[in-house]
Amino acid sequence: MNLDFLSPIESELLESLSGLHPQSIGANIRVHSERSGVPEIEGVQIAIFGIRENRRAVKKNDTPVFTEFREQFYRLFPGNWKLNLADLGDIEPGATVEDTYFAVQNLVEQLIKKDILPIIIGGSQDLIYAQYRAYDQLDQMVSLVNIDSKFDLGDADNPISNQSYVGKIVVDKPYNLFNYSALGYQTYFNSQEEIELMERLFFEAYRLGEVTGNITLMEPIFRNANLVGLDLNSVDSASANTAYFNSPNGFNGREICALSRYAGISDKVSSFGIYEYQNRFGSLANTLVAQIVWYFIEGVNYRTNENTISAKNEFTKYQVPIDDEILVFFKSPVSGRWWIEIPFLTNANTKLKRHTLLPCSEEDYLEACNQVIPERWYKAKRKNEV
């Protein structure tokens, strides 16, 4: 695996952290340094790297440098983790943005193939397009969850930007996108045209108040995701004590960390990107980014691996008749989590067979018992029929 295009972590940072507590993350993570080179990744479960790219941002900012994030993250103590971590350094801006995209796509693809979960700290959020394209050669349909105040659909006919990239994901070949879920959108930041388009495409959209009203209901959304993107602008300005997070409304620190942990717990999530990082972040904002990463890793550590056939054979089955349908629910005796079966057509794309069990909540089962069809089940079924 060629990792020569990655730049090492600053020597000054590593020297300043030489006195870290021996149980801290920084004292136990494998790092890419000028002296030692790229770390050995054999046996590593999670690899962190930065992307110093933001040329497609609508509002231009300095090229991001992740030194202070790393300083805050390395000082944290791990939980009761059984995971080996590596910090691979940074992808520098390529001669063109497309060169950067290619490097990101290649690195994420190679890490996933080695069963190493990449955590990406990036500049402008258009980089999630490259994260998504890493799945092109992995022979699977992809579900994307985006934690963002905006849908970022944009116009697929226009050049890609950090506010217009989902349209490119939808229309560019190869067509791998199975589902797109937007968590935490704020209506006044999105045009009615985009809101209606989300409905027509049977994508899922959850308003900020809906998410924060009962954040536990978002766990099933992550359970079916392959990749997750997080726009740091979805955090309210007060939680990070910075005017850069320029909305008074958004997720607070506890909420964004809870969502990150749900993303980590998901057995299917194989890459996690945090975008719109800025050099203007102060120490509090960098501490929050470090804790977002910490909670994602905490979630990964507690995965129950319920996607295996043997695990599903242990599920308890429930059948609920509604009108002319019989909804079939499954409950895990290990985690207590719920799924609902999607009746796929016989001529459906065989790639979709992996999505025959759709994660849901116990509330969905209870509502079905009251003759209310879950909206997620309806949208997934309609997707298969189109």
Rank of each mutant, 00 (worst) to 15 (best):
N224F: 01
N158C: 10
N28R: 14
V235F: 00
P174D: 13
L259D: 01
G89K: 05
D157M: 15
N214M: 01
D155Q: 05
S361V: 07
I128A: 07
N305C: 08
P64A: 11
I340S: 04
K150H: 09
L201F: 12
Q319C: 06
C369Y: 00
F73A: 06
V31G: 03
Q371W: 00
P343G: 09
L227Y: 01
I274E: 10
P359L: 06
Y175C: 02
I41P: 10
S234P: 00
L107D: 11
Y378H: 03
Y180M: 12
A263Q: 00
K59F: 07
E341S: 09
Y185N: 12
W339T: 03
M218K: 01
T346R: 05
D90I: 04
N252I: 05
G299H: 04
K168F: 08
G184P: 01
K60Q: 14
Q186S: 01
F77R: 05
I147F: 10
L85M: 06
G336K: 09
I256A: 05
E276P: 00
T356K: 08
I265S: 04
Q278M: 07
S361F: 05
V142G: 03
A86T: 04
F281M: 14
S266W: 02
V293I: 15
E363V: 13
Q45K: 12
F49S: 09
L357P: 04
K312N: 11
R376N: 07
N249R: 10
G167W: 07
Y206A: 01
Y295K: 13
A95T: 11
D90Y: 07
G154L: 08
